[in-house]
């Protein structure tokens, strides 16, 4: 078999290269890979640790400091609207250890009201809605940024 020397050398070289590659690649497999399935189990933990920005509970955290407005809202027509829908992200207002860090951003524009109350064909008719342009014409005002909240208190929109 002397004439096959070059083939043996080739085979040896091939085995050496392939086994080296396999061994090196095994070193790079992440620790928790395959713990639960064909993925990195640590990623579950990483995803859990992402901090929340949007508020967690509906009213509980607000009522601690803002008793009046929260209580008003809870019994108004807007009881199901979470505070965060008009007030900016809570993390900009309160720090993690419940200290006020900045003024709560609030959306006072008519555009935010129009999201729900602009008259649309597709919108359920039980929801109070107006054609904003017509409504303002009826009230004799013009379209300004915070025109809605001049008459309607968002925390208690309809006087009862």
């Amino acid at each position: 078999m002397r004439y096959a020397k070059h083939i043996f050398r080739l085979a040896l070289l091939l085995i050496f290269v392939i086994s080296t590659i396999i061994i090196v690649l095994r070193l790079f497999v992440p620790d928790s890979f395959g713990k639960y399935g064909n993925y990195r189990a640590d990623n579950l933990k990483e995803q859990m640790e992402i901090p929340m920005i949007w508020q967690g509970t509906r009213n509980d955290s607000c009522i601690v400091c803002h008793k009046q407005n929260t209580n008003k809202k809870i019994y108004s027509k807007h009881k199901n609207v979470p505070c965060m829908n008009c007030h900016g992200p809570i993390t900009e207002h309160v720090s993690r250890d419940n200290k006020k860090i900045a003024v709560m951003p609030a959306l006072k524009s008519w555009k935010n009201c129009a999201r729900c109350h602009q008259k649309l064909v597709a919108r359920a008719h039980v929801l109070p809605q107006v054609d904003i342009v017509d409504h303002l014409k009826d009230q004799g005002t013009s379209l300004e940024e915070n025109v809605c909240i001049q008459c309607h208190n968002p925390h208690s929109p309809k006087p009862e």
Binding site: Y36, R58, I74, N80, A124, V126
Partner: peptide
């Protein structure tokens, strides 16, 4: 037109959300 939004608080947004049911530490997937 009473079919679409019947009672708003039927199951969706209850207005007295309490503390979370579980915490990150005792969460078992």
């Amino acid at each position: 037109d009473n079919t679409k939004v019947e009672k708003k608080d039927s199951s969706g947004g209850s207005n007295t959300d309490t503390k979370p049911k579980h915490t990150e530490q005792d969460y078992d997937p």
